[in-house]
């Protein structure tokens, strides 16, 4: 069980993190959030040669840097390209910037604009795990079943990081499906019976079922 000092430390940490979160929220919420994130000072960073000649759709007279108040851009109506979910909220400069024609990057799929934090180890079909509504992954348990190591029982409610040490930074390199790879500490603690003494150090599935966290069920 957690000692008193650990409990105090834990409580202080929770309070500290919650306070930091509150400060961050307060600061950011007071910061203006502009649809599509465009600001006057960004200026015409992309060539306008394909734009409509009705300059006053976007600009006020006498100053090219100042956009009309409440400037919005209907991307679908003006370009025929629909922006869904998070893309509809994104800053224009995320795609339209100094790198060049957006069409060049669109052809490359997600990788044209998004960094691959999985460093190429998960292929190019980002939509297998992510969608445009939220970048948070989905269906990981279902996909894990396809690897040969299905997440049965308690494994389906376990943090990825327990077996994939790089999970927190997007690295899901395979882990050996031998039980001891992730349960090494459990094996070391198992002294009733003494697993090491009896040579019970592999093929845990001969006795243990993946149904409970700690207590074993035997055949």
């Amino acid at each position: 069980m957690m000692s008193q000092s650990n409990q105090n430390r834990s409580r202080h940490l929770w309070i500290g993190v919650a306070f930091a979160a509150y400060v961050m929220v307060a600061c950011v919420t007071s910061y203006p959030r502009i649809k599509n994130g465009w600001r006057d000072e960004l200026g015409p960073v992309i060539a306008h040669d394909s734009f409509p000649l009705q300059c006053d759709s976007c600009h006020v007279g006498g100053d090219w840097q100042t956009l009309v108040e409440g400037f919005t851009f209907d991307h679908e109506a003006e370009t025929g390209v629909v922006l869904n979910g998070a893309h509809d909220q994104a800053q224009c400069l995320r795609c339209h910037n100094d790198r060049g024609e957006v069409a060049t990057f669109v052809e490359q799929g997600c990788a044209g604009c998004h960094e691959d934090i999985h460093i190429g180890t998960l292929g190019t079909r980002c939509d297998s795990c992510h969608n445009e509504q939220t970048w948070r992954p989905r269906n990981q348990v279902a996909m894990h079943n396809r690897t040969g190591f299905s997440l049965d029982g308690v494994h389906a409610a376990t943090s990825c990081r327990n077996c994939h040490q790089g999970a927190e930074v997007g690295r899901f390199t395979p882990t050996s499906s031998e039980c001891v790879t992730c349960h090494r500490d459990d094996l070391a603690r198992a002294n009733n019976p003494n697993h090491f003494g009896l040579g019970l150090i592999d093929r845990c599935d001969r006795c243990h079922m993946p149904t409970r966290w700690n207590q074993v069920e035997t055949q």
Partner: peptide
């Protein structure tokens, strides 16, 4: 190779204002 119309000088990166943007998440 440039169009005659609406050729607007893009502001060079070094001429732009300092701008902070980003996101926070919890």
């Amino acid at each position: 190779d440039k169009p005659l119309l609406a050729e607007i000088k893009a502001i060079r990166p070094e001429d732009r204002s300092m701008v902070i943007s980003g996101r926070v998440y919890i």
